[in-house]
Design a protein around this nucleic acid. Sequence first.
DNA 1: TCCATAACTTAGCCTCGGCTAAGATACTCG
DNA 2: CGAGTATCTTAGCCGAGGCTAAGTTATGGA
Lengths: 150, 150
Amino acid sequence: MPKSTTSRLLPPADDHAARFLRQREADRAAVAEDYVELIADLLREEGEARAVDLARRMGVSQATVTATVARLQRAGLVETKPYRGLFLTRAGDAMAEAAKRRHDLMVRFLLAVGLDRETAEADAEGLEHHASERTLATFARFLAEQESKA
Amino acid sequence: MPKSTTSRLLPPADDHAARFLRQREADRAAVAEDYVELIADLLREEGEARAVDLARRMGVSQATVTATVARLQRAGLVETKPYRGLFLTRAGDAMAEAAKRRHDLMVRFLLAVGLDRETAEADAEGLEHHASERTLATFARFLAEQESKA
DNA sequence: TCCATAACTTAGCCTCGGCTAAGATACTCG
DNA sequence: CGAGTATCTTAGCCGAGGCTAAGTTATGGA
């Protein structure tokens, strides 16, 4: 029984697997991005990013922050000066900036389609990690079009 | 010096933490939903859901499927008949249905804002787990409005 | 100055979700 | 029927990302 090409309620197994793979990669990257993004925010708005504040804002124990920051450090994203807070490397800065860009775009888009700010901010936290560049570009285009019509 | 309008102030630490907490919960639920959703799809379209097919489509080893299915079984979502494939419990069915509903809505929405089908399907895989009910409702409303204008 | 406290680290534990390699079991076909 | 293959399981490993409890150490106030 040869599979007809139109039996694509399910995608070909390979494509299907590829999607989930990309998915898992995004998940792995997400935590790093969240920490880095938050460190950047704290630096910008409070002048420093202490581990204790990260713990509070991430809703996580200090021990977890220590461990995660160690990973980020190994990954070359973060630098620490004990009792002087956390700092971003160049790579970390770049990641933070990209994350912020995605986050803001996501929020603006959600607002544009009619969501309230509160939910938009909350959901963007999760959604921002799973929108491909192509999708983000589409959202940006949507915003531009909507603006030109207003 | 008016920085960009997007220089949001940080939310109160508690709210911030709550967002990330919800985030982590969604992440934990996501794998279960993906497996359950896929089992439902296979049952519907192929008549049976074998572990070997799950492994192929999830892009994962058979051993991983065994372990994950064991968890799903413990969670009361799945039943197995060795060499006869996997089946969903009532709870599993409900989860699959909800997941499918979210997935389809997500895809339709992404198409509606101008994304190509391929990317829409791929990104929906990740996005569907991170949109709150409120956001999904907003997407549905958006679709309805757009339709009424056509 | 000095010491209480807040900040940070370490040790030890957990679950989840992956992996490979090797073992057991059912199905199928010659 | 019996052997070979496909399917499924088991064992043992890993890293990420959580936790608590018990240290250390720097800071700052009396």
